[in-house]
Design a protein around this nucleic acid. Structure first.
Lengths: 197, 197, 197, 197
DNA sequence: AATGAATGAGCCTTCATTCAT
DNA sequence: TATGAATGAAGGCTCATTCAT
């Protein structure tokens, strides 16, 4: 008797196993057999829930991006004022759920393969555009548009750069450190460019 | 009688073909057959010059890092004063030779697989440490050590982040833009923290 | 739902195909592709049932030795008295199942490669020790221990030597001939050394 | 300037390297590259002195058989009387030059592949026939033809069998032991069948 | 005569995908 | 739904053989 609503559950379960396998074996060695074993299911079943391996990987990335989007919406909801909004964006980027070793590994691995996949690159760029837009709007409330754009670009680059360094270092990341770096950057921008407004 | 000095030439040739193949097909699909074809040689010959595929990939990465190191040494040689040294480091990171689409693609692809390769991660971290050290020393000539350390971290993150964004965007990058971003960051740090020195 | 008990059947089937391929092409040219074709299966399936080619070859040898052991146990069960036991050992060594051209070819081919394989050599020596022990005990019931030991050695060498000659000759072997040779040797030993007991 | 008479020397040198490589790596892994390295020459040169690898292996076997033939001729030359001739044959078979670990390994390895090579099998059978003939003639001087034939067969089988056991055991062989085994067999045959002559 | 770089066929092995159950 | 046995294409790698020097 098939359980109703199993489909989304199975998909989540398999996506989680994919993330975990990418972390443990690397993207190249995250075979369907390993992902299935980690999810506690058979190899064949994956093709009932995903078109093929590419689809699973793509949906895995989409899931990561969606998690990040939800996190950002939540953080922004409780943020009051432009500066708080900027810090909320930072907090979302380094929130515990996104900032686990497993997730970062998956993310970075997928970056690499996104370069040769239009689909992956597309959703990555959507995320990038959204991040840039959020930052820009927040900065725009504090300084001229041109400065805000540059500040937003810098902030986005800082977020990505810090995140990349953490991912490569591999040790337990300290989100607080990233937060302080960004906070300092934001305040410096406000102090400098905001003063002239 | 074998031509003297063919070995390093062949290795360079194969490494170039590897970089180009990674760009064209992605790391996962950069097969030895494709790399060989692109280099205009037979498949088997690769194993005369490299232990195996892993070795070729590793040496490819080493070659990229070495190019960057040489570039940085050169740029620093003609730099006068701390601020110029900082900008020289930036210029090296975004020099034309490093900043081609092919090279960036290879770099990002290899980042992903470095997460599961001690050897790759090791040489990446050497590069990271050298970059950080160079930046730190330059900043230290302009501000207190603690501030210099933070400024260096920020600059390194900015470089990596900008570079990552360029890589993902995929269109022809404008090194000048990156240079200006960093220049602005450096000057802000000097203005703000250097003032108190 | 997988058929229960398929695994040992498939393994037997593949081992039989391996023996047959070794006979037809020689050990060096008994490729997995040929073995698979002979078994009527695909290449890949071999790795579901054996670790790798080495494992298949090893298990093939083990199977041959096991068949021989079973044969010997059976023959000894129906043997009454020391002389009959000796002849039973001979009969087991030259029993039809062991004494086919295919089996002999496989055996001799594997002897050659056993010289460079600890695992193969180990199980061969176990077989040799068991044969020697059986012969020694049987002879010991008929003559002094020192004579029995020598007689057993000679009988073992005769068995191996005859068997080797048959294998190399390649035509259909006559087990009866070997049996008579051994019988004559055994009786001569009994007559000569047994008389002094 | 090509040295006159280098050809037979190079061939001997390469054959020696082949025997040694077969011992060290096994026939399957005795590649031309390894054989060449062991002989201290380049890979390509082998094809100046042998048609191909098969030819080298074949000539290697022929060389081993020729050594044995020469040894046997020498031993028989200094043998006086039928019993001494029989022991001379045995001595030749277990002479130090033939009875080294390297030579035995090569011999056994080649037995295996002889099963699928008409040429190899042919020269092996020539050796077998010669051995049998020598033994038969010597025994025939001591007993009726029918008994002599059987005694010769037994002696040949004993030689091969003992030799096989030594080869498989792999430790340092004691030719004296084999000699005593054969001597005892010969004397028993003479005593028993010769008495009735 | 001699080298060893270069070739390319063929091997073992892995793995996404399919399919009978 | 779910299993995992089975397929077969493709990859990395080895190695006998050739060839320019």
């Amino acid at each position: 008797m098939p359980k109703v609503g199993m489909k989304p559950l199975r998909r989540k379960q398999l996506i989680a196993a994919a993330i975990s396998s990418i972390h443990e074996y690397g993207l190249a060695d995250a075979t369907l057999a390993r992902i299935a074993r980690k999810a506690g299911v058979s190899t064949g079943i994956i093709h009932h829930y995903f078109d093929d391996k590419n689809d699973l990987i793509f949906e895995t990335m989409r899931s990561l991006l969606e998690d990040l989007r939800v996190e950002m919406v939540m953080q922004l909801r409780s943020a009051d004022g432009p500066r708080e909004r900027l810090l909320a964006i930072v907090d979302a980027s380094f929130a515990p759920k996104q900032f686990s070793v497993e997730v970062m590994t998956a993310w970075l691995s997928l970056y690499g393969s996104a370069l040769n996949s239009h689909e992956l690159r597309r959703i990555f760029n959507i995320y990038g555009a959204r991040l840039a837009s959020n930052l820009r709007h927040a900065f725009a409330a504090l300084m001229p548009a041109a400065d805000a754009r540059r500040a937003a670009e810098g902030a986005a680059a800082l977020i990505d750069g810090l995140w990349l360094q953490f991912a490569l270092k591999g040790d337990l990341p300290d989100p607080g450190h990233a937060r302080r770096m960004l906070q300092s950057y934001v305040d410096l921008q406000i102090t400098y460019h905001g003063a002239r407004q």
